[in-house]
Amino acid sequence: MRKNVVFVLVLVLVMATMGFAAGAAEEEVFPSREISLYIGFAAGGGTDVLGRRIAENMEPELGVPIVIDNRPGAGALVANQQVANARPDGYTLSLLLGNQFLQKHYKEADAWIDPLEDVTLIGVFNRDAWGIAVPSDAPYDTFDEFVRYARANPGIQVGSGPPGTLYYWTWQAVIAETGIDLTIVPYDGTAQSLAAAAGEEVAAAGAGPGEAASLMDGGLVKMIGVAADERIDAFPDIPTFAEQGFDIVVGPWRAIVGPPGMPDDVVQTLANALETAYYSDAFQDFIRENGHGAFFRGPGEDGRAFFEAEDRFFYSLMAAQGQAR
């Protein structure tokens, strides 16, 4: 029993010392120690690689290491929740994706955060384009022809991700814009729905051109459009939906965020490092070579406006289906 008391006392002392040490460190100039960047996806995936690439280009600006901490779960919600509740000292950050707005408004999601209130935006550093891949011998070569085909054959089946994910609601955006009647078949992931399109189980699958590239090379699928403002450098032959007369611009984007209530100077230091890293040759080469989309919004007015536009976009998409919270 006495042993236990001694043990607890030692423990309390150690913790107190660590607390003092942390308190002392805070008074120094930010950043004075390593920064943790939570990534809500497993190591090795597309978002993980993007996050690591931006982080390694931020390190020289900040002069401290950025330690990547993969905490997968619920489409990055777990990682974002943890950061939303962390100390707002700038040493704990996370990657936030557009699906966080989706979860906020989707009435079936029973856990969510509000990116407008619960986190501090440091900056958005990438936006990929969603697109439509179809079997290579499908009787339509453009999105326009696809829409006409769908009008003539109501209820044709298209492959998507699960309903709680972005690649399901992108199809709803297509339906909202064109008014065609599609049967959405949810697959477990983009690779599976693409495989289903290649195997002609469905008439089309939603995917970014980078994700469909291998199957395009293999002559199994062709892409009839991408949901970007302009054509993507790495895939100049794929037309945008906009140039075919349809206003559909959507795709996964990535931002770095911190806990709510961060001091302005800390936010600014991080945002400056992010901006420099984004425009560095190393990062620009990386996104171009991998078919990722270039896109940047800082923490100020433009970033806020982008977040609010995304918020309205997902709300209206779900409200139209009666699926909004």
Binding site: A74, G75, L77, V78, E108, D110, A111, P162, G164
Partner: peptide, 13 residues
């Protein structure tokens, strides 16, 4: 897309 037995835990989504 309906949440089943998650009791509001993001970890269970």
């Amino acid at each position: 897309g309906v949440s089943r037995f998650t009791f509001g835990h993001a970890e269970l989504a």
